[in-house]
Simulated assay, not measured.
Amino acid sequence: MPPLSPSPSFPSSPSTRDSVVAALRAAGCVFAEDEAELILDAARTPEELAALVDRRAAGVPLEVVVGWAEFRGLRITVEPGVFVPRRRTEFLVEQALAQVPDASVVVDLCCGSGAVGAALARALGPVELHAADLDPAAVRCARRNIDGHVHQGDLFDALPDDLRGRIDILAANVPYVPTDQVDLLPAEARDHEPLSALDGGPDGLDTLRRVAAEAPQWLAPGGCVLVETSERQAPTALDAFATGGLRTRLAVSEELYANVVMGVRGLDQ
């Protein structure tokens, strides 16, 4: 996965930039100036620029409009209908690297675009990297972002059986929005991202519990599983991993509003 770099675009004048900013601001884009620069960089012709501005003004996520998202210095391809990687998830990557800095087998479960797997592989160097998602669109997108094995299927059912007991880092960015709160999400997520990547069931933790129940048999000794939750959900998530016999830890980033729950398999297990 290449590092972030500019795309070729057509020369634009200050008046063009001003008109793009004005259109985005009128559509309610809070960071209209910053978004205008990205859209101008993505457009190769005046006609394409107009189409991109219209899509953004209609509420399509900026990352889908320009076709990529920045994630830990990488340019991650983002396709329509695929979960957009959040900057707060960079904290999950940091926690994984701190826990197992010499990991050689990495799995990005519920991978979406594959941003987490791509970032881990770039930081670790040569690794055996696997990613999996239930959504065919996510699998197609992840295959563009990951230099590794991308599988389609339901959680662990998608993984090769020979990974059992060998995974050093299992990053599972599971859905964790309670069902009755999905309608409260910003329209960009609610209307343009797959429901399966957002809705985590009645309390938001249905998928997390499934991961916690199976993760211990897939982790290598000393391996860890990491998930994001909300602050309110964290105690229940910690209990789920502890029930499976894993050592648990909660890491919090106030700057990124991120809560990462980690379960670690003991070296003697």
Rank of each mutant, 00 (worst) to 15 (best):
Y176H: 03
D161L: 13
G117L: 03
D108L: 06
P2Y: 00
G67A: 04
R87V: 13
S7L: 15
V116Y: 03
A118R: 02
G59Q: 10
A240W: 05
S5R: 12
G125T: 10
P202Y: 00
P216M: 08
A42R: 15
A171Y: 02
R75Q: 14
R86E: 12
E79F: 00
G112F: 03
A50V: 04
L109R: 03
E228M: 04
R25W: 06
E128D: 14
H130C: 02
F10Q: 10
R210V: 03
C29D: 12
A26E: 15
S230E: 12
E228P: 10
P216G: 07
F156L: 10
G266F: 05
T236N: 05
Q269P: 00
Q269T: 15
D147A: 13
D18R: 13
Y257F: 08
T207P: 01
R144P: 05
F31M: 07
L62F: 09
A158W: 02
E35V: 04
L198K: 11
P160V: 12
G165T: 02
V260N: 06
A43T: 11
E37F: 05
G200R: 01
D239P: 00
D183R: 12
A69S: 15
L219Y: 08
L159H: 06
V30G: 01
E188L: 09
C110T: 08
A26N: 12
P175R: 09
T89S: 14
P3I: 04
A137P: 05
A51Y: 00
T207N: 00
H149T: 14
L184P: 00
V30E: 15
F31D: 15
F31G: 06
D268G: 06
I39L: 11
I76T: 11
R86H: 07
A103L: 07
P178H: 01
A50G: 14
A138K: 10
Q269V: 11
A131P: 10
N145G: 08
G73H: 06
D154L: 09
G165V: 03
E214M: 02
A22G: 13
G201A: 07
R190D: 01
D34A: 13
I167Y: 01
V78W: 05
D135M: 07
D161T: 12
D191V: 02
Q99L: 13
R249M: 12
A51I: 01
S13Q: 10
A36F: 08
E70A: 13
A189K: 11
A119T: 06
G263T: 11
P85M: 03
A57R: 11
P80G: 07
D133Q: 04
A22R: 14
T248R: 01
S12H: 14
T45H: 07
A98G: 13
V260L: 04
V211Y: 00
V150M: 05
V53E: 07
V21S: 04
G244K: 01
A121C: 09
P80S: 07
E90G: 06
V106G: 02
E188I: 07
V64Q: 15
R44Q: 15
R247E: 15
A121Y: 08
L124M: 09
S5W: 01
Q181P: 00
G81Q: 12
E193R: 07
Q217A: 14
S5V: 09
R17I: 09
R144L: 15
R25N: 14
C110S: 11
E63P: 00
N259D: 10
E37Y: 00
